[in-house]
């Protein structure tokens, strides 16, 4: 299983954005702000924080597939739309919670999606960006994340049973 995650991480679709990150494609201060906003949003809805890792993955990979420049006209608005769309997509596919049932999560997810759609930028911009992003990501929307790794590591750990019972990892 861990080999699977590693192979996935090293595959072309999931790896190429690391180079762009290192090359400073996204100004770090913007990236930090986006990440903080993600955590704030996800915590507000009580979703598992894994969704932030997934959203950042979508964001980085999509930005790296585009030819954006920091000094471009309206670039801030574009980044805002990309960031909101990445979270929109990540919540759709990966928003779960250990403490909430799937039925309740479904209602919560709807509220969260509505909040993004009607809260940050024009709804149609997000919907248009969603399709662009899906193609930009080559429809690969299940990236390996640190949380994935941590959950699996816990599972294999000799004390995993005790951790699961006590709810502490």
């Amino acid at each position: 299983m861990l080999d699977c995650l590693l192979a996935k991480e090293q595959s072309a679709q999931y790896q190429h954005h690391h180079r762009d990150l290192n090359a400073g494609r996204t100004p770090l201060r913007w990236r930090r702000k986006i990440c903080e906003w993600y955590y704030e949003f996800v915590d507000y809805f009580n979703f598992d924080r894994e969704v932030v890792g997934v959203a950042m993955n979508y964001f980085d990979r999509y930005i790296s597939s585009q030819q954006y420049c920091e000094y471009e006209h309206n670039i801030l608005a574009t980044y805002q739309t990309v960031a909101a769309t990445a979270l929109f997509l990540a919540i759709k596919l990966h928003a779960t919670s250990c403490e909430i049932s799937e039925e309740d999560i479904s209602a919560l997810r709807k509220r969260a999606l509505g909040k993004i759609l009607y809260g940050t930028t024009k709804p149609q911009d997000i919907l248009d960006m969603e399709m662009n992003m899906l193609y930009g990501l080559d429809w690969k929307v299940n990236p390996p994340t640190l949380h994935n790794f941590a959950f699996m590591f816990c599972k294999f750990h000799p004390l995993s049973g005790i951790c699961a019972e006590s709810g502490s990892y």
Binding site: L5, D48, T96, C98, S101, N142, F151
Partner: peptide, 12 residues
Amino acid sequence: SIARKYEHPARN
């Protein structure tokens, strides 16, 4: 084997 990667503890 693929689905195991998305397994999540104690999910209802």
